[in-house]
Design a protein around this nucleic acid. Structure first.
Lengths: 148, 148
DNA sequence: TCTCGATATTTGAAAAGTCAACTAACCAGC
DNA sequence: GCTGGTTAGTTGACTTTTCAAATATCGAGA
């Protein structure tokens, strides 16, 4: 144990170090690709959370993307100004604001999906299908344990 | 394949969905714990990157934390104002600004480490030691492939 | 129907992050 | 010892995120 470090913290053995780093690198790369389209990670998340032809409330999208609600509201407002989404009160319950993709939004979704997918291919290249399933399962377990 | 979704995107099978979600939940929880101490995730990262008695340049910390350099500069400035770190030009090469923890910083590091560790225990509860090693290895592979 | 509590969003001010341009220090080759 | 290219940091303008307080809608029950 390191004399200078009373915690004996070893980077190599700390899972959240790797987790945050892998996620950070993924997002950095995605950000770089998106920038070429005039988009960013915040918009990307909305594009992926809202499926074409479906509607999702701002709160639902915020929860899926793990972003605070006022933040998501403003992302949606920017995207509406960009013409990527439409936001309007839900018919059945006026408290909700439903977000849907415009056709420009659907197109953008398609393009950004390809970007994300090519990063995925690089990130997992060489891993066998069972390896990949294992990652999903492991992450899903963590998500389940950290969701209350 | 979903008629409405030309990409056939299935959340359950998309590893980055799980990766970003697990990381996001981890960070949300950490943020909540840190707030009680008047700290935040940005400061947490610096506290963990700089080992007591060692010095790290702002650029090194930014690179480790996957944060842009000007952002890290400002985090360090805030932390210096808080009395958690000391920043000064490196002796051997004045271009670098070396950051070290003050004794208040070392104390804070110890406290936040315990917070992070208790989230880790929750996140991985039930996983065997080999499971945990597998996660580290898998994440390390992704990191290696996404680093140029 | 009217009111209260709960839910979902909206707002505006404050904090944090980002970009692009600038400065400072170094060093290899003249 | 000067000069030009390179690396590391700093700055100020601008954008995005966050917080806390306000608004809007709904639904149960007096």
């Amino acid at each position: 144990m390191d004399e200078l470090d009373p915690l004996g913290f070893e980077t190599q053995e700390w899972p959240f170090y790797w987790l945050t780093r892998a996620t950070g690198l993924y997002l950095s790369r995605l950000e770089r690709s998106l920038k070429a389209e005039g988009l960013d990670v915040a918009r990307y998340r909305v594009l992926m959370c809202v499926r074409p032809g479906q509607a999702r409330s701002i709160g639902e999208i915020a929860e899926l993307a793990i972003v605070k609600l006022p933040t998501m509201l403003k992302i949606v407002q920017r995207m509406q100004a960009d013409g990527l989404v439409l936001a309007r009160p839900r018919e059945e319950d006026g408290r909700f604001t439903d977000v849907t993709l415009t056709s420009a939004g659907v197109d953008a979704r398609q393009r950004v999906w390809h970007m994300a997918h090519s990063i995925y291919e690089k990130a997992f290249s060489g891993d066998t299908p069972p390896d990949r399933v294992t990652v999903n399962e492991q992450m899903a377990r963590i998500v389940a344990r950290l969701s209350d």
